[in-house]
Amino acid sequence: MTARTFKEVCAHSLMRTVAGFVISLAFLMAFGLYLRARPILVTKPLEELLFHTVWNPSQGQFGLANFIISTIWVTAIALIIAVPLSVFTAIYLSEYAPAKIRNIARPVVDLLAGISPVVYGVWGILAIVPIVRDYLMPFFSEHLPFFPFASDNYTGFCTLTAGIVLAVMTFPIIISVTEEVVSRVPFELREASLALGATKWQTIKLTVLKKARPGIIAAIILGVSRAFGETMAVLMVAGCAIQGFPRSIFDPAYPLPALIANTYGEMMSVPLYDAAVLLAAFILLLVTMLCNIAGWGILLRTERRGM
């Protein structure tokens, strides 16, 4: 064997090792977290952990329901805001926008993706909290004092604030995936529709969006996973008080990731506490992994069908 082929063989096996390590990383993470969460899974029934609302580690009560419901609340609010804005933006950028606007908007989306979550949190505290506290909350509690708006939390640190901050954080992933999916729709389809006398918007609505629908759904699923797992920004603006799950968009929320981040310092102090917190991390891992497998799976399938 010459030195050259020896080097080649070495490099090849090294690369295969790295590739194997990366593949196994996902399983390693799931396994590691499961192992640390096991002590609580064997001592408490799963439905007590998932569906009970009492969280009192020093009494040995570890009901995660409040945190799970909080997570669902903030994720839902974030998506209600982010999905229309992002999808419209993506369609505009790929179908209508002149090159000039596109050249401004694309880097903006990239920069939004790069900003630190903590900076988002600071922005939330400085800008969104006062807006919610001084304008939205008084308005809604005066004019619409019923289910999703009635609340007695006047601090501005609430579910809605977290939802707004999260919405901006999910813009980049939804916009960039949607834009790619929409721009992959073959040009002939548009031409055919336009030739039949449809307006540009009708073409988009009836042809392009129909063809791109699975991809857009995938984009939204990826947005869900992004909002579900976001930690620091939410921790800073959601209020994070243990007083039951939010019953209004102005109540404080305490999502799962914030729970993990908040309890890291004290979780070794009480038995089973660390297992409960790492169970929360394990749940987070499973949900985001499933979302990502679904999202990227749909995208790969549509890509393969040559859409």
């Binding site: 790492l278 985001t288 990227w296």
Partner: peptide
């Protein structure tokens, strides 16, 4: 194999950083 590798990388990309932190902790 390339298909699977890219898929795994995409999925790893989507896992939130707090989970990486918790894993690092374990």
């Amino acid at each position: 194999r390339a298909f699977i590798m890219r898929f795994f990388l995409d999925v790893l990309w989507g896992i939130p950083s707090i989970v990486y932190g918790a894993f690092g902790f374990t």
